[in-house]
Protein backbone atom coordinates (compact mmCIF):
# COMPACT_ATOMS: atom_id res chain seq x y z
CA UNK A 1 0.00 0.00 0.00
CA UNK A 2 1.49 3.26 -1.04
CA UNK A 3 1.79 5.92 1.55
CA UNK A 4 2.20 8.59 -1.00
CA UNK A 5 -0.03 11.47 -2.00
CA UNK A 6 -2.77 10.81 -4.50
CA UNK A 7 -1.75 12.19 -7.90
CA UNK A 8 -4.32 14.16 -9.87
CA UNK A 9 -3.96 15.61 -13.34
CA UNK A 10 -6.44 18.40 -13.97
CA UNK A 11 -6.93 19.18 -17.66
CA UNK A 12 -8.88 22.41 -17.72
CA UNK A 13 -8.56 25.70 -19.57
CA UNK A 14 -10.82 27.90 -17.50
CA UNK A 15 -8.74 29.72 -14.85
CA UNK A 16 -11.77 30.07 -12.59
CA UNK A 17 -12.54 26.39 -12.69
CA UNK A 18 -8.89 25.49 -12.15
CA UNK A 19 -8.73 27.68 -9.08
CA UNK A 20 -11.98 26.44 -7.65
CA UNK A 21 -11.36 22.77 -8.36
CA UNK A 22 -7.92 22.98 -6.81
CA UNK A 23 -9.19 24.78 -3.74
CA UNK A 24 -11.93 22.25 -3.11
CA UNK A 25 -9.61 19.31 -3.66
CA UNK A 26 -6.85 20.69 -1.49
CA UNK A 27 -9.30 21.13 1.35
CA UNK A 28 -10.32 17.50 1.15
CA UNK A 29 -8.97 15.00 3.65
CA UNK A 30 -6.74 13.00 1.33
CA UNK A 31 -3.17 14.17 0.77
CA UNK A 32 -2.74 14.86 -2.90
CA UNK A 33 -0.69 16.51 -5.59
CA UNK A 34 -2.56 18.33 -8.30
CA UNK A 35 -0.89 19.00 -11.62
CA UNK A 36 -2.63 21.30 -14.05
CA UNK A 37 -2.41 21.49 -17.83
CA UNK A 38 -4.56 23.84 -19.84
CA UNK A 39 -4.96 22.20 -23.22
CA UNK A 40 -5.23 18.75 -24.74
CA UNK A 41 -1.82 18.85 -26.35
CA UNK A 42 -0.17 19.50 -23.00
CA UNK A 43 -2.28 16.74 -21.47
CA UNK A 44 -0.88 14.24 -23.96
CA UNK A 45 2.66 15.59 -23.53
CA UNK A 46 2.23 15.18 -19.79
CA UNK A 47 0.90 11.64 -20.03
CA UNK A 48 3.54 10.54 -22.52
CA UNK A 49 6.18 12.46 -20.56
CA UNK A 50 7.29 14.48 -23.51
CA UNK A 51 9.38 17.66 -23.49
CA UNK A 52 9.09 19.66 -20.32
CA UNK A 53 6.93 16.94 -18.84
CA UNK A 54 9.64 14.30 -18.96
CA UNK A 55 9.61 14.07 -15.18
CA UNK A 56 5.84 14.05 -14.83
CA UNK A 57 4.37 11.74 -12.23
CA UNK A 58 1.82 9.20 -13.28
CA UNK A 59 -1.64 10.41 -12.28
CA UNK A 60 -3.97 8.17 -10.28
CA UNK A 61 -6.91 10.17 -11.60
CA UNK A 62 -7.42 12.55 -14.49
CA UNK A 63 -10.09 15.24 -14.40
CA UNK A 64 -10.68 16.00 -18.04
CA UNK A 65 -12.56 18.91 -19.53
CA UNK A 66 -13.86 18.30 -23.05
CA UNK A 67 -13.75 21.72 -24.65
CA UNK A 68 -10.05 22.37 -24.72
CA UNK A 69 -7.75 24.33 -27.00
CA UNK A 70 -5.59 22.54 -29.61
CA UNK A 71 -6.56 18.95 -28.87
CA UNK A 72 -9.99 18.41 -27.37
CA UNK A 73 -10.80 16.17 -24.45
CA UNK A 74 -12.29 13.36 -26.52
CA UNK A 75 -9.09 13.21 -28.56
CA UNK A 76 -7.03 13.06 -25.38
CA UNK A 77 -9.24 10.23 -24.18
CA UNK A 78 -8.86 8.37 -27.49
CA UNK A 79 -5.07 8.60 -27.42
CA UNK A 80 -4.55 7.63 -23.83
CA UNK A 81 -7.06 4.79 -23.76
CA UNK A 82 -5.33 3.31 -26.82
CA UNK A 83 -2.04 3.16 -24.95
CA UNK A 84 -1.52 0.00 -22.94
CA UNK A 85 0.58 1.82 -20.39
CA UNK A 86 -1.97 4.55 -19.78
CA UNK A 87 -5.39 3.09 -20.31
CA UNK A 88 -5.87 1.85 -16.77
CA UNK A 89 -5.69 5.41 -15.45
CA UNK A 90 -9.09 6.59 -14.27
CA UNK A 91 -10.53 9.45 -16.27
CA UNK A 92 -13.39 11.50 -14.90
CA UNK A 93 -14.78 13.74 -17.61
CA UNK A 94 -15.79 17.02 -16.01
CA UNK A 95 -17.36 19.41 -18.44
CA UNK A 96 -20.12 21.94 -18.91
CA UNK A 97 -21.37 20.02 -21.94
CA UNK A 98 -24.66 18.25 -21.33
CA UNK A 99 -24.86 17.10 -24.93
CA UNK A 100 -25.96 13.52 -25.21
CA UNK A 101 -23.49 13.05 -28.06
CA UNK A 102 -20.60 14.10 -25.80
CA UNK A 103 -21.76 11.88 -22.94
CA UNK A 104 -22.15 8.83 -25.16
CA UNK A 105 -18.89 9.48 -27.01
CA UNK A 106 -16.98 9.77 -23.74
CA UNK A 107 -18.32 6.43 -22.47
CA UNK A 108 -17.70 4.86 -25.85
CA UNK A 109 -14.09 5.98 -25.59
CA UNK A 110 -13.86 4.36 -22.17
CA UNK A 111 -14.04 7.37 -19.92
CA UNK A 112 -14.60 6.00 -16.42
CA UNK A 113 -17.37 8.44 -15.74
CA UNK A 114 -18.88 11.69 -16.96
CA UNK A 115 -19.89 14.53 -14.73
CA UNK A 116 -21.64 17.66 -15.91
CA UNK A 117 -20.10 20.65 -14.14
CA UNK A 118 -22.78 22.23 -12.03
CA UNK A 119 -22.99 25.99 -12.51
CA UNK A 120 -24.00 26.60 -8.93
CA UNK A 121 -21.01 26.98 -6.59
CA UNK A 122 -22.37 24.79 -3.86
CA UNK A 123 -23.29 22.04 -6.27
CA UNK A 124 -19.93 22.34 -7.96
CA UNK A 125 -18.30 21.90 -4.57
CA UNK A 126 -20.45 18.85 -3.89
CA UNK A 127 -19.50 17.35 -7.23
CA UNK A 128 -15.76 17.76 -6.63
CA UNK A 129 -16.10 16.41 -3.11
CA UNK A 130 -18.09 13.53 -4.48
CA UNK A 131 -15.23 12.75 -6.85
CA UNK A 132 -12.76 12.84 -3.99
CA UNK A 133 -14.85 10.64 -1.74
CA UNK A 134 -15.73 8.14 -4.39
CA UNK A 135 -12.51 7.81 -6.34
CA UNK A 136 -9.95 8.53 -3.68
CA UNK A 137 -11.41 6.62 -0.79
CA UNK A 138 -14.11 4.23 -2.00
CA UNK A 139 -12.88 2.92 -5.32
CA UNK A 140 -9.89 0.66 -5.57
CA UNK A 141 -7.46 2.06 -8.10
CA UNK A 142 -4.32 0.53 -9.55
CA UNK A 143 -1.28 1.44 -7.52
CA UNK A 144 1.66 -0.31 -9.09
CA UNK A 145 1.38 0.31 -12.77
CA UNK A 146 4.36 0.57 -15.08
CA UNK A 147 5.79 4.02 -15.71
CA UNK A 148 3.83 6.21 -18.05
CA UNK A 149 4.45 6.20 -21.76
CA UNK A 150 5.84 2.68 -21.64
CA UNK A 151 4.95 2.13 -25.27
CA UNK A 152 6.66 5.24 -26.46
CA UNK A 153 10.29 4.99 -27.44
CA UNK A 154 12.50 6.58 -24.85
CA UNK A 155 13.78 8.90 -27.55
CA UNK A 156 12.69 12.17 -26.02
CA UNK A 157 15.61 14.07 -24.60
CA UNK A 158 15.12 14.72 -20.96
CA UNK A 159 14.42 18.37 -20.50
CA UNK A 160 14.33 20.11 -17.20
CA UNK A 161 11.24 21.66 -15.79
CA UNK A 162 8.41 20.40 -13.69
CA UNK A 163 4.71 20.55 -14.32
CA UNK A 164 2.61 23.21 -12.78
CA UNK A 165 1.60 22.03 -9.41
CA UNK A 166 -0.42 23.06 -6.48
CA UNK A 167 1.15 23.07 -3.08
CA UNK A 168 -2.18 23.22 -1.41
CA UNK A 169 -1.83 26.60 0.19
CA UNK A 170 -5.33 27.77 0.88
CA UNK A 171 -6.49 30.84 -0.97
CA UNK A 172 -10.03 30.93 0.25
CA UNK A 173 -11.01 33.02 3.20
CA UNK A 174 -11.35 30.91 6.29
CA UNK A 175 -15.06 31.52 6.56
CA UNK A 176 -15.79 30.47 3.02
CA UNK A 177 -13.46 27.55 3.45
CA UNK A 178 -15.32 26.42 6.52
CA UNK A 179 -18.55 26.70 4.64
CA UNK A 180 -17.21 24.77 1.71
CA UNK A 181 -15.35 22.23 3.73
CA UNK A 182 -17.42 21.32 6.71
CA UNK A 183 -15.55 18.56 8.48
CA UNK A 184 -16.43 15.03 7.76
CA UNK A 185 -14.55 11.84 7.82
CA UNK A 186 -14.65 9.62 4.82
CA UNK A 187 -14.07 5.94 4.70
CA UNK A 188 -10.57 4.96 3.84
CA UNK A 189 -10.05 1.41 2.74
CA UNK A 190 -6.41 2.16 3.31
CA UNK A 191 -4.98 2.30 -0.18
CA UNK A 192 -4.11 5.90 0.29
CA UNK A 193 -3.76 5.37 3.93
CA UNK A 194 -3.50 8.64 5.69
CA UNK A 195 -6.70 8.33 7.56
CA UNK A 196 -6.80 9.63 11.06
CA UNK A 197 -9.56 7.14 11.84
CA UNK A 198 -9.29 4.28 9.39
CA UNK A 199 -12.47 2.65 8.30
CA UNK A 200 -14.84 4.94 10.12
CA UNK A 201 -16.90 7.71 8.77
CA UNK A 202 -19.48 9.96 10.26
CA UNK A 203 -21.86 12.44 8.76
CA UNK A 204 -23.84 12.14 5.61
CA UNK A 205 -23.19 13.21 2.11
CA UNK A 206 -25.41 14.18 -0.71
CA UNK A 207 -23.81 14.35 -4.08
CA UNK A 208 -25.15 16.86 -6.53
CA UNK A 209 -27.49 18.91 -4.45
CA UNK A 210 -30.39 18.45 -2.08
CA UNK A 211 -28.37 19.95 0.70
CA UNK A 212 -30.15 22.54 2.68
Amino acid sequence: MPSRPFEILLVEDSPGDIWLTREILMQGPIPKNISVVTDGEQALDYLFQRGKFSGARRPDLILLDLNLPRVNGLQVLTQMKKDSGLRAITVVVLTTSEARSDINAAYDLNANCYIVKPVDLEQFTQAIRGIEEFWMSMAVLPTTLPPMGAEEAQAEPKASGTPAESNGSGLLGSKLRRRLMSPRLVRYPGRYAHSPVPGRRVGSRRFGGARS
Partner: peptide, 28 residues
Amino acid sequence: CYLGKPATLEEFFELVCQVEEYWLQCVA
Protein backbone atom coordinates in the same frame (compact mmCIF):
# COMPACT_ATOMS: atom_id res chain seq x y z
CA CYS B 1 -14.85 1.43 -11.52
CA TYR B 2 -13.58 -1.25 -9.16
CA LEU B 3 -14.85 -1.62 -5.63
CA GLY B 4 -13.75 -4.06 -2.98
CA LYS B 5 -16.59 -5.74 -1.10
CA PRO B 6 -16.11 -4.81 2.53
CA ALA B 7 -16.13 -7.53 5.15
CA THR B 8 -18.73 -6.06 7.46
CA LEU B 9 -22.40 -5.71 6.74
CA GLU B 10 -22.46 -2.08 7.73
CA GLU B 11 -19.57 -1.15 5.46
CA PHE B 12 -20.99 -3.11 2.57
CA PHE B 13 -24.31 -1.35 2.91
CA GLU B 14 -22.56 2.00 3.08
CA LEU B 15 -20.55 1.19 -0.03
CA VAL B 16 -23.66 0.42 -2.06
CA CYS B 17 -25.29 3.63 -0.81
CA GLN B 18 -22.24 5.51 -2.07
CA VAL B 19 -22.51 3.78 -5.42
CA GLU B 20 -26.13 4.88 -5.60
CA GLU B 21 -25.27 8.44 -4.71
CA TYR B 22 -22.29 8.74 -6.99
CA TRP B 23 -23.35 6.82 -10.08
CA LEU B 24 -27.05 7.67 -10.03
CA GLN B 25 -27.01 11.18 -8.65
CA CYS B 26 -23.66 12.74 -9.47
CA VAL B 27 -22.63 11.11 -12.73
CA ALA B 28 -24.27 11.64 -16.11
